[in-house]
Design a protein around this nucleic acid. Structure first.
Length: 325
DNA sequence: CTCAACGA
DNA sequence: TCGTTGAGG
């Protein structure tokens, strides 16, 4: 089934927010989705539904979620999942184009019965509607929060940015950040209390595995992209990889089989990422424009975002935060 | 995510 | 007894 099993393998520790500083490359899809579901759950829908029925609960979520970063002197960089094509995602026109080719590629994948391609495409795009993606980007732009467009999985791109030293942590609730090679991942950035730090080096050292072996173990257990072997959980996977060395040796020894093993392996080992990004960590939010965008343009209930904007303003004017202007 | 049942 | 699975909240 997948993901939670990696928790038992990963070396994770609670870390006080005071010990976290720098830039967090946030898996935007993941982050938005978490706030979206909690907003929808706790807020009556008329507070974020426009006259024509468009739901923009994401705007409330963003306003309530960003202060967590700012108040702890952390710069978030929102990394969005890419579409399936190579088109530039900067302009709305090209995004419309992307959406079209996405549907086409999904169609092709369905016809061919390519489960992996379907899973990959759906994991990136399905949950967040185009309106949510676009209004989120616009609000982030007004608040001067950097946005990076990933060529494919946002999580892979975020991991890549940390490896290159352009960010200090990946921010995501998903454990696959580990498989994409993220050295340090922060979890629980959306909930109350201190975050958790997931450490790749420590995880590999703890089990005496290479990253390639960890990926193979995950494939045996099952990932977002493959089923895994029934009867194999975290313990069995680690000991089997330790004993036999790699995925294929384990499968041969057990007489088992996984679908798309080589492709899932490649997906994690050589993820589709880009060096073509840039962002300015000195933030200069336009709070009035942001408020107007949320409350006036999208007619979100002002009370729902008042406190969030207040907190953003307070942390922005706090003394000692020289990155703020 | 927690918990109970099940199979090795 | 341990590890995995599957249901339920």
């Amino acid at each position: 089934m997948g993901n939670a099993a990696l928790r038992d393998i990963a070396v994770i520790e609670e870390i006080p927010f005071d010990d976290v500083e720098g830039v967090v490359a946030v898996d935007a899809h993941n982050w938005l989705y978490r706030y979206l579901t909690t907003t929808v759950k706790w807020t009556s829908s008329e507070k974020y539904t426009t006259a024509d029925g468009t739901e923009v609960a994401n705007l409330i979520g963003i306003v309530q979620g960003l202060p967590k970063f700012f108040e702890n002197d952390i710069v978030p960089v929102m990394v969005f999942d890419g579409g399936p094509s190579e088109l530039k995602a900067d302009e709305i026109e090209s995004r419309r184009e992307q959406r079209r080719t996405y549907e086409e590629q999904l169609e092709v994948a369905r016809e061919e019965g390519d489960e992996l391609a379907i899973a990959q495409l759906e994991s990136r795009t399905q949950r967040l509607t185009p309106e949510i993606q676009e209004t989120s980007r616009e609000l982030l732009r007004l608040l001067d929060v950097p946005v990076v467009e990933a060529p494919a999985e946002g999580e892979a791109q975020a991991a890549h940015m940390v490896r290159r030293g352009d960010a200090d942590y990946v921010g995501s609730e998903d454990y696959d950040a580990l498989l994409f090679g993220a050295p340090l991942t922060l979890r629980q950035l959306t909930s109350k209390g201190d975050p958790e730090l997931m450490d790749l080096e420590a995880t590999l050292a703890h089990h005496d595995l290479t990253l390639e072996q960890l990926i193979d173990a995950a494939i045996l257990i099952g990932t977002d992209f493959n089923e895994g072997v029934s009867g194999i959980g975290p313990k069995t996977a680690i000991s089997a990889i330790t004993e036999h060395g790699d995925l294929w040796s384990v499968l041969e020894a057990r007489g088992d089989h996984v679908e798309y093993g080589d492709r899932v392996r490649a997906l994690f080992r050589e993820p589709n990422v880009s060096d073509d990004y840039a962002f300015d960590p000195d933030l200069d939010p336009d709070l009035e424009a942001a408020r107007a965008y949320v409350v006036d343009e999208w007619s979100v209930d002002a009370d729902e975002v008042a406190r969030g904007f207040e907190r953003i303003e307070e942390s922005a004017t706090q003394t000692g935060l020289d990155r703020w202007t």
